[in-house]
Amino acid sequence: MAGGLGQGTGKSARTYAGLGVPLILPAWLIIGIFLVVPILIMLVYSFLTKEFRGGVIWEPTLAAYDQFFFDRGLFGDEPPKIEWTYILIFWRSIWQAGLATVLCLLIGFPTAWFIATRPPNSRTIWLFLITVPYWVNLLIRTISMKFLIRDNGPLNQWLLDAGLISEPIHVINTATAVQLGLFYSYLPFMVLPIYAAVERYNFALSEAAADLYASRWVTLTQVIIPSVKPGIIAGCILVFVPSLGAFLAPDLLGGAKNFMIGSLIEEQFKGAAGNWPFGAAAAMILLTMVLIVLIFYARSQARGAR
């Protein structure tokens, strides 16, 4: 019986394997044309010479990367010093994205837990409510937030009227505003994967922990969190990676002083001031950093599965 079942499964697996190639071809084509090829173009462009008013000249050079990391003076003839400008922008981006990830986790985990522990019918409603804001374009939502948090915006007005503050809280064009924007934009990307993990969590494990004298805190840290870890990691990646390259929130809420990588890259491809090879180089450096994060994730997953 068991043997027969096993053989049956083997046979159908082979059948599907045969069908697989033609079926998966469209997916490979789309990934190839719209993902791999553009990245290769970026990679090539990052090693080319810039053309003024946009575009490239087909002369290979390391100038873009050199410009990113080194300062050789106004005329390019001084001994190289470390160029901190762009490293600082990257550092600020990593810091902002990391902070957004931590905040999303702190708020998103309890939210996901709350939804996953409701009766099945009302879970659907809560999940629906979480996704409602996404029916509106991110650009419009970010602009709305800008109006909300302005010095003379409704939030400050309300606090003033309520007598809670005596002068408007200045948030717009600060790092805090950028953080607020990132947090708001990517919170659902934290909630949804954690929700999926908590929904699969076996609540008998919490009872077993309590039965074995564990306090609520120990149950949370030693049983629940390790059990839903894949959801937490997925949520962190889904928040961290887009936050790192975000340009809407820093552009619209942060002003000139809170420049992030996304805005830096965007500017290089916009208008006459652009520098395509430099933008491509910055994008490749960003991509490398994201890949390093993802490799760490894959490693930890492989360890967990072993």
């Binding site: 008998a204 077993a208 309590a210 039965d211 004298y213 059990s227």
Partner: peptide
């Protein structure tokens, strides 16, 4: 008393072993 303060232990129907 809450369960973690009762000196009894349980063998669960589906065992509820900590998978990690």
């Amino acid at each position: 008393l809450p369960p973690n303060r009762r000196p009894v232990n349980t063998v669960f129907q589906q065992y509820a072993l900590f998978p990690h």
